[in-house]
Design a binder for these strands. Structure first.
Lengths: 193, 193, 193, 193
DNA sequence: CTCTAATCGAGACGGTACGTCGCGTCTTACG
DNA sequence: CGTAAGACGCGACGTACCGTCTCGATTAGAG
């Protein structure tokens, strides 16, 4: 921070820096609603954020980094909302919580799942899920098969949500929660004789 | 074409044109093995094909067009090999045929499913599958749900194949055929009480 | 010519060849009225002549060659009309003849002197004039000074004609003939003490 | 320019911009010594200036613009050197000054008058001369004739200088000054009975 | 409240790739 | 054989962004 040394060089409290960062984050999200990732230029993001384009580089090495930050943030928020419910209550309740949250932040998640960010979200989501799955591993299958199961489950959920958000007249969150539950149950039987 | 009259203006018999086209096709495939789509420049493709870069544009409007051609070609080849088997024999036999073909053209399909072409293949595959599914529609579900089923099935198959080809020591085609069959069976139960 | 040997390989009587050549000549002239030399593409000339663009190259190595042919032809025609008059009658009569001819072929000469061909005509005209001047050399000056005199005379005449043809309401040929005569007389006194 | 406020947006004080501009100017001049204008590519100029080719376009819309700048600059320098002398002293002194300057910057002027820049210089020189002539108009002739006189005078001077610089063993500046004086005197009598 | 250095805007720059255009050559098929 | 049609390798065009860099001007926060 200005004027002197700081306890932690990584965490800035400088208001200017935070303002720029948030402006970039918001501007990027707005642009992603309309365009694909590689139709958005860095200068465009910076301009939309009311920020010099060089400032962008002071915060992120490139637009992919910003996108990954953004995706990871939102996914983690979703997971933190859903996972505890699943553990303490039931898969059914967790699906309901998930769908409710997604529906509540529908615009954001439409962008994340069906817009230009989709493939980054896919990767990020899988990475996070892998970590979670590593914790509660079922040892009945080999590691490779176990990974396949994770991949299929996560992708099925993701595709279902994306399909949901693409609908002109979307189903109710409760309806989708049921579908999700069914899908999850289905995948649970995979590989079990 | 050179000279004057021709029966069909769309089908060229000019040897030069065919040669260029094939060279571009092959060079592109080769580059896709190593790089992502947007790390490949059009001039690079043309150079690798031993062709002037302007010639590329005389054949395709851009690299996406070439990629789509390529993906559609290979997918259609695969479908034409698999679908008849499923109709005349069984799903089991079709899975076997599919896996055998993919394994036989393993390098190509690794590129298509796990390389730079992956997302284009995903789209193309879904489009073709939608067409097929439209023919043998099951009317028990609504159109939206029916589409979801197609999406989930196709993606599950695709992800499984991709996972297979990513393995360092891949399973035998027969083994994967069994897995695929199970996955397909699983998805058939979707939406049925 | 087709089918057999020819007495003189340089002079073709093949009707097709002559037709193409003339068509190119005419089309080029037409285009020169509207555009600068390097705004005219060879393909454009060929198309305007109703001829394949490759045919152009069978006749001329490039558009400059065609332009030079054209310029040289017309200049020579003009000289052949003017020079004899000067020798047999007077400079005055020659100027009159020149201006009359130019005025009669006004459109052509406007193109040649003020259009895209101007600088080629300048060069060609000087070359031809140098040849003529070499015949009737005045040995009172050195060769260098003598060349300067030719340059200045020819350019003065050319610029005057160009100026004339650029006028919205051009003077009569007789009026210009007088001016030319004065200019020539003036240049004759150059270098004479 | 960088930072914020500036008195005049047209005049840049940014050292980088000036350096690039000058480098382009110099490199272009160097190339013009050897080649015609349209044998010089913009990328070639930029490379010779040690500058990215896009930078060229940040300064000039095209090579013609650079050439015109260059020509106008040098012509104006010459005029500013010659015109005052003519006014305060004599035509003779002015011719001497002109020839001395041209001879001193002989390489540059050879390029400008006999190289690839020649026709641009011709146009530019005429334009500037027209402006000067407009000031000290002689009203004895009509405007058209008066313009012809300007054209002829300027071209005669220009052609004489070009001829001079083309000579293998050029005459002394004094000698050429005399010739020029004679030519100017000659043209002064034009149109006067 | 005052300094001081972190942050910023503006934008020039060397690059790379873009997609278009015209060149001159070469190939093929007609008449 | 001369020609049309046109594919081709080549190379310049002018544009768009890239990521780096240098500037002063501004401003937040430590003392």
């Amino acid at each position: 921070m200005p004027g002197a040394a700081s306890a932690n060089p990584a965490i800035t409290t400088d208001a200017r820096k935070l303002r720029s960062r948030d402006a970039l984050y918001a501007a990027f999200l707005k642009l992603l609603e309309r365009k694909n990732l590689d139709q958005i230029s860095i200068r465009e993001i910076a301009a939309a954020a009311g920020v010099g384009h060089a400032t962008f580089y002071r915060h992120y090495p490139g637009k992919e980094a910003l996108l990954n930050d953004l995706a990871a943030d939102e996914i983690r928020r979703l997971v933190n909302l859903t996972l505890p419910v699943m553990k303490s209550e039931s898969t059914q309740a967790a699906c309901a919580a998930l769908c409710t949250h997604v529906f509540g932040n529908r615009k954001l998640w439409t962008t994340l799942l069906t817009g230009g960010a989709a493939s980054a979200v896919k990767v990020e989501l899988l990475a996070i899920s892998r970590n979670i799955a590593a914790g509660m591993d079922n040892h009945s299958l080999g590691p490779a098969m176990s990974e396949l199961k994770t991949i299929l489950s996560v992708n099925a959920i993701r595709e279902t949500l994306a399909w949901w958000l693409r609908q002109r007249k979307p189903l109710s969150p409760e309806r989708v929660a049921c579908i999700l539950e069914e899908i999850i149950a289905l995948h649970d039987t995979l590989g079990v004789e």
